[in-house]
């Protein structure tokens, strides 16, 4: 340790240096978080504890809807995103292709919110351009009951950022696969399928799991896109929470919004923990 730095920045000062950041997080993240939980468990004059009411009846189906949406869009995002990454690997001889795709993925992964919803309304809304185009070739989405604000509609929109997010996670992971592994596997008699099944996939598993978790949480927390697609009437938990904050008029149920939010935090934390455990197991060989 250098004495001069230590002198000007002694132990006390060092801890002081972290104080602004720590206080900031306490005030603007931890305190609101704790407030959510405190209110969520506060029954007040309501007939039922909000934490219980939040996962029964109407709200239970909201959670199921949100979670299903998150998992379905994450699984599709994983599969398609991985396919794109593998396609890029196959086409590695095409100069510049990878940079373009990865660059656009970074852009698209950050997209979302209102503008993205608009884009899909313009394309796949009732009178959307794509909707009418497809109808012209006898693919009648609306006739089949497809609505952009419904489950599969939202999935279609979410994929716009889920796919590139996954591609961004997998491309570097694929780079980590050494050519010698595939060649060693082949020289030992493995077919391409066996190589992927026994070598590449197990090595990629931690990255895939991490990416999948990212996608699930990403979709679970999303709000704006679904809100705009459905003009504020979506079944999503996030959209439901809004009612309680704005209209504290629903008598006796003031704290239900907090309970919904608390459950969201619990579920996300649970997902993170679960994936931590899975990744750790998939990663045993790293340590």
């Amino acid at each position: 340790m250098n004495s001069r730095v230590a002198g000007s920045l002694n132990k006390r000062a060092r801890h002081l240096a972290f104080a602004p950041y720590a206080i900031f997080l306490l005030v603007f993240l931890v305190w609101p978080g704790l407030y959510v939980f405190r209110s969520a468990f506060d029954q007040g004059s309501a007939p039922k504890n909000p934490m219980i009411e939040a996962v029964t009846g109407q709200y239970r189906s909201s959670f199921i809807f949100s979670l299903r949406l998150s998992f379905v869009s994450a699984i599709l995002g994983l599969v398609i995103g991985a396919t794109v990454a593998v396609a890029l690997m196959r086409l590695s001889h095409v100069r510049g292709l990878r940079n373009v795709v990865v660059g656009y993925s970074a852009v698209a992964a950050n997209m979302g919110g209102i503008p993205l919803a608009f884009a899909f309304l313009a394309a796949f809304g009732m009178q959307g351009l794509a909707t009418r185009l497809l109808k012209g070739i006898n693919i009648d989405l609306i006739g089949w009951g497809f609505r952009i604000s419904d489950f599969w509609g939202i999935v279609l929109v979410y994929l716009y950022f889920q796919i590139p997010l996954m591609t961004l996670v997998i491309v570097p992971a694929l780079d980590g696969l050494r050519r010698t592994w595939s060649e060693a596997a082949q020289s030992l008699g493995a077919s391409t399928r066996q190589y992927w099944r026994f070598v590449a996939l197990p090595i990629l598993t931690p990255a895939l799991l991490g990416g999948f978790l990212l996608l699930v949480a990403n979709a679970f927390a999303a709000y704006a896109t679904a809100f705009a697609l459905s003009a504020g009437s979506s079944k999503l938990v996030t959209v439901q929470i809004r009612f309680f904050l704005q209209g504290e008029t629903i008598t006796g149920k003031t704290n239900l919004g907090y309970a919904l939010a608390a459950w969201m935090v619990i579920i996300t934390a649970f997902l993170v923990l679960g994936f931590q455990v899975l990744s750790r197991r998939a990663e045993r060989w790293r340590r």
């Binding site: 993240l29 609101p32 929470i241 939010a261 969201m264």
Partner: peptide, 14 residues
């Protein structure tokens, strides 16, 4: 990441 924006803002407002 664990505290979604919607939960954060609800808690913050309260």
């Amino acid at each position: 990441f664990v505290v979604p924006a919607i939960a954060l803002v609800v808690g913050f407002a309260g």
